[in-house]
């Protein structure tokens, strides 16, 4: 596991999950879990790889690149807000900001950049922010996740962890009920993916949505499926959840944007 600044508990949590899934799926390499449920079914993986040859999200990457490179009214641009001019940095998001003591997702950073430059923030449910983050993810493809949990971030990390393991909604399900306890089993025709690898491929083009969407959209959908009232995209609870889940991906290769059923 990379990331020297990962607290001992977070590292242990990640190692425990890796060990759990190594035992559950002895024939699946750790790195293959970046492909989600496709790591668990070769026939579905073949279909998925063929879709990825001509991916339906490709035009959105182009649109994201155009938006990313469009100057703000003050002449500045997104590149000025990020290290390495915003290219190849997605694997270090979300990150913990010690000044605000908040988890900063890439979407939040994009809007923060806009506001710093006098632009209005983009809607977290809109196409523009999804396209921009899709382009930024694309430039990070092949990089390994390296999310740190520095001193002061433990609370946010643990809140995300608690969310993941807590039952909610009228159906009384936790994220872990499906993606830990029942990982590899089927819900109707679908195979439930493993917890590790859940944050590698966002934004994702889900065929159910017929468009790209971010990981918070998926959180909201999962919550609604179990009968809970979904939280707002980029709410503190969802950002902490994304933080926990991405730390669990540390060492795994970023492969977004991607497609999922």
């Amino acid at each position: 596991m990379s990331g020297d600044a990962v607290s001992g508990d977070a590292r242990q949590d990640r190692d425990d999950l890796v060990a759990f899934f190594a035992k559950r799926f002895p024939d699946v390499e750790f790195s293959d879990h970046a492909n989600g449920a496709y790591a668990l079914d070769e026939a579905k993986a073949r279909q998925w790889r063929e879709i990825e040859d001509f991916p339906p999200y490709e035009p959105m990457i182009d649109e994201g690149e155009r938006l990313f490179n469009t100057a703000f009214s003050n002449g500045s641009g997104y590149a000025a807000c990020f290290e390495h001019e915003g290219i190849g940095i997605k694997q270090r998001y979300p990150r913990f900001d010690p000044d605000t003591r908040q988890v900063v997702t890439l979407e939040l950073a994009v809007n923060h950049c806009r506001e710093l430059n006098g632009e209005s923030p983009l809607s977290y449910t809109g196409e523009a922010i999804t396209a921009i983050t899709a382009y930024m993810a694309f430039t990070s493809r092949g990089q390994k996740f390296d999310i740190s949990v520095p001193e002061g971030a433990e609370s946010a990390f643990n809140q995300g962890k608690q969310f993941y393991y807590s039952r909610r909604g009228q159906l009384n399900f936790a994220c872990s009920n499906c993606h830990l306890d029942a990982a590899g089993l089927r819900l109707r025709a679908e195979i439930l993916s493993a917890t590790i690898g859940h944050a590698t491929h966002w934004p994702a083009y889900r065929f159910k949505w017929q468009e790209l969407g971010g990981i918070h959209r998926r959180f909201a959908e999962c919550n609604e499926q179990v009968g809970a009232v979904a939280l707002d995209h980029q709410s503190e609870a969802y950002r902490n959840l994304e933080y926990f889940m991405t730390v669990m991906n540390n060492g795994m290769t970023l492969n977004g944007p991607s497609t999922r059923k």
């Binding site: 242990q12 393991y165 039952r167 909610r168 009920n177």
Partner: peptide, 27 residues
């Protein structure tokens, strides 16, 4: 249903750690 959802929140705040992977030595 509202009372049940509040009960769920209270209950889960106490028991969520029981769902951590059983292979864990840290749990």
């Amino acid at each position: 249903s509202a009372e049940a959802s509040i009960l769920q929140a209270e209950h889960e705040s106490r028991v969520w750690r029981e769902r951590l992977p059983k292979t864990a030595t840290s749990n």
